[in-house]
Design a protein around this nucleic acid. Structure first.
Lengths: 220, 220
DNA sequence: GCAATCAAGGTTGTCAACAATCGTACAGTA
DNA sequence: TACTGTACGATTGTTGACAACCTTGATTGC
């Protein structure tokens, strides 16, 4: 059944693996905003030298997940209300563009795939599993952009999604209208499936404002 | 007259300076697509060790300006027709979002500022200075996003602009309807100044398709 | 003539040590 | 008491050397 029995081996480089691990820790909140990342510490913990660690941290710096202060250290970024606005603004910009591409190319297949993501959200919602809920939420947006098959949009989106995860961590379990959250996503998926560009745009815009409303309400 | 007599000093780090220099060389075409960048060579040329150079190159890799092949080397990215589509798609996504922000915030000031950029384009056009023309073109788009005051949109856009520069280099002096190019930009600026969101969107979309049409015509 | 093998060269990947810089605590002085 | 100067600790910034790896070309055997 395996169409490609032998896949080209391409084990990722050490810095890449380290960066992925750190990224996940930050997204999950294991490394809290404001916390310092010490090169030597991480290096010792992973059993490698400072070089690869330094390279990994530098990637996170460029992604904006951590900020580096010369001769002082690197720290996990802290988000202000301003940043929340910016993250969601940028993310929506990318997703709108992706949705437009899908509408004019893969409508049906994309719509169905997204509806499948919505189903997983609904399941998590009825199970009242908030962690799975957030994961499914993220997965929906990831899929949306991924299917647009635009390397640059995807790359920009990946960073924004990590930042979104960081935001969602902060309000984990603190908001409760999960049904709205599910139906919003379903609305977007259906609009794309129907190829109704204007509707998809409006619903993505609404989704952004809704999420921001919730986040800023908790933040302020 | 000086409101801030003492500005906080913040000289950029060595890798940052190196990256900027390499980026410019790539954008200008001094480092042609496909060409190899050898760490040791660059290090020796700049009088530093491989460390900072490596860090700078790594930034360019993450920006997608160069591709790195393990144990072989890093090479300036080569663009296929597919990439041209992707670059302009992503760039327009960012610029549309920026334009919307400007429409609902800074309309008049932004519009005027952009019209000033258009003036510089027009001057370059009458002087038939194609280099200045391209620079003014880029400056217009840079200003557009910069004024939206969104750090994330700006960061994404910066990379896309460098890639755009690389594209424009290839057709320098090979297309001639400069008046259309100027009027397209003027149209976008005016739509923003008037706060006409729909019109601005349509004109940005048109601008993208026009540019792509020219580029792909020369490419294929 | 052709294929497989082997060696050489070059490039990146990794490492440990050293230098530069910054923040802080503490003592000294007006 | 408040301010200045100084020494210390910690962290990053930088360097040169070494190891791993891939590519390439020549050489050998068939």
């Amino acid at each position: 059944m395996n169409s490609r029995p032998l896949q080209p081996i391409a084990r990722e480089s050490t810095p890449c693996l380290i960066a992925a691990q750190l990224r996940q820790h930050i997204a999950e909140g294991a490394l809290a905003p404001g916390e310092q990342l010490v090169e030597m510490e991480i290096a010792h913990e992973l059993g490698v030298s400072r070089g690869p660690v330094r390279e990994a941290i530098q990637r996170l710096t460029q992604e904006g997940l951590v900020v580096s202060i010369r001769n002082k250290g690197v720290f996990v970024s802290e988000f202000e209300a301003e940043d929340l606005l910016d993250i969601y603004e940028a993310r929506t910009a990318v997703e709108k563009s992706a949705a437009l591409l899908l509408c004019s190319r893969d409508r049906l297949r994309a719509g169905d795939e997204l509806l499948r993501c919505v189903e997983r959200m609904a399941e998590a919602s009825t199970a009242e599993d908030l962690g799975a809920m957030s994961e499914a939420d993220i997965a929906f947006h990831e899929k949306l952009v991924e299917m647009a098959a635009s390397p640059r949009l995807s790359r920009m989106h990946a960073t924004l999604l990590t930042e979104t995860r960081m935001c969602l961590n902060r309000l984990e379990g603190r908001y409760n209208d999960e049904s709205i959250r599910v139906s919003e996503h379903r609305g977007i998926a259906e609009a794309i499936r129907e190829g109704n560009e204007d509707l998809a745009m409006r619903r993505l815009e609404l989704h952004k404002e809704d999420a921001l409303g919730r986040l800023l309400h908790l933040h302020g």
